[in-house]
Amino acid sequence: MISQDSLINFALESLGLPDSTEADIAPLSKRGSGRTFFRFRWSPQDSAIIIHYDPERIENTYYADIAVFLTKRLIPVPRIIRHDPSKCIILMEDMGNIDLWSYRQKDWEIKRTLYQKTLVAAYRLHNIQEDLSCSDIRLMEGFNAALYEWEHKYFLEHFVKGICNIDIEPKMMAAIKNELHQLVKRLMKAPPCLVHRDLQSQNVMIMDEKPFFIDFQGMRTGCAFYDLASLINDPYVYFSDEEIEELLSFYYVLSGAALDWDAFRSFFWEASIQRLMQALGAYGFLSLKLGLVEFLRHIPGGQNNIIRASTYVQNIPMLSQLLLECKGKTETISP
């Protein structure tokens, strides 16, 4: 582990500040993915964020270059001040402590405005149209059938079996796998674009009433509906059916979608099933395998959202039955 003195020296040098500058450094809550975060402050008004990352998580080595790529294309992300790959340190703009999640209890009029601004930024990301093979940017492998299927296994292993302690009998498992295979085939028909991959409320910082994306190291090509599901069917924030429809309609009009509205909605709810399986699998893995039991409290929101989504998706009767069985098994779970 690198010393805090080394991090301070790195920041002072990067900012062109004298060694005699009175500065302090404070660790921030851990965001995971093999990274540690610090707030470096050299005056009451001036601060920056330091990230020290584990390069074994290959996506961590992509973060700074992706940030520069997005900044050049006017996608709102923190500005990279300096990146030293040899030391695995990034110094970047401090976006403060207020994220989109912080507004979860606010009146709909306030939330709606911020979410619409976030959807505008998401659309700009999804609408980047260039040949990425000709750029220097490195990305994780794009969404494909194998990645979607990996998320299914993640859900079945760490949530259905790990959290709910359900052993699915072979005939039912075969039926569920067939339903999920068909779901993947439908999602693969959605137009491909760049996606954030984890566009939930805690990965959108709010500064001066404007959204800024963070934690985009997993950005890749995929389906825009996966991002929409991550944001609008976020287990951390409750939306009524009417609010979901309003936000989804806002993006639909904004994007000038070539799809008709019914097809657009179908893609959204199917992507919501996919995304929420990934999220529930993650809650199981993080709580049971890594001991991060605080993630257990997000299970009810994730389950409620995926059960609601299942009512909008046809041809998944066995999966829907499993989701209801899981709900019954987790009613007594608490962190």
Rank of each mutant, 00 (worst) to 15 (best):
I75L: 08
Q116G: 04
F212A: 13
S201C: 10
E13H: 11
N127K: 13
H52W: 00
L70K: 06
P300R: 14
A146M: 08
I81L: 15
E22K: 15
L139S: 10
N144H: 12
N233E: 05
D227K: 06
Q278A: 11
S266K: 03
S334W: 10
Y62D: 05
L147M: 13
L259G: 02
G34W: 01
D234Q: 09
T36N: 12
E331K: 15
R82Y: 07
Y63D: 01
F143G: 06
T71Y: 07
M172Y: 01
K30N: 10
R265D: 00
W269G: 01
Q200C: 07
L114I: 05
T330L: 12
R275W: 05
K185C: 13
D46T: 09
N304D: 12
E93G: 07
D167N: 11
I137L: 15
V204K: 09
E242V: 06
N60W: 00
Y62F: 15
K161I: 02
N203T: 12
Q129C: 04
M318F: 08
Y103S: 05
M172Q: 14
F10S: 06
A145E: 13
A67Q: 03
D65C: 03
W261Y: 13
L139N: 08
F159Y: 14
E245F: 02
I81P: 01
G256W: 05
V293L: 10
D5S: 11
N97L: 03
P55D: 13
Y154H: 15
L187I: 09
S133F: 05
D208Q: 13
G291L: 11
L125R: 04
K289F: 02
F38C: 08
I206K: 05
V195C: 14
P170I: 08
L276Y: 02
D46W: 04
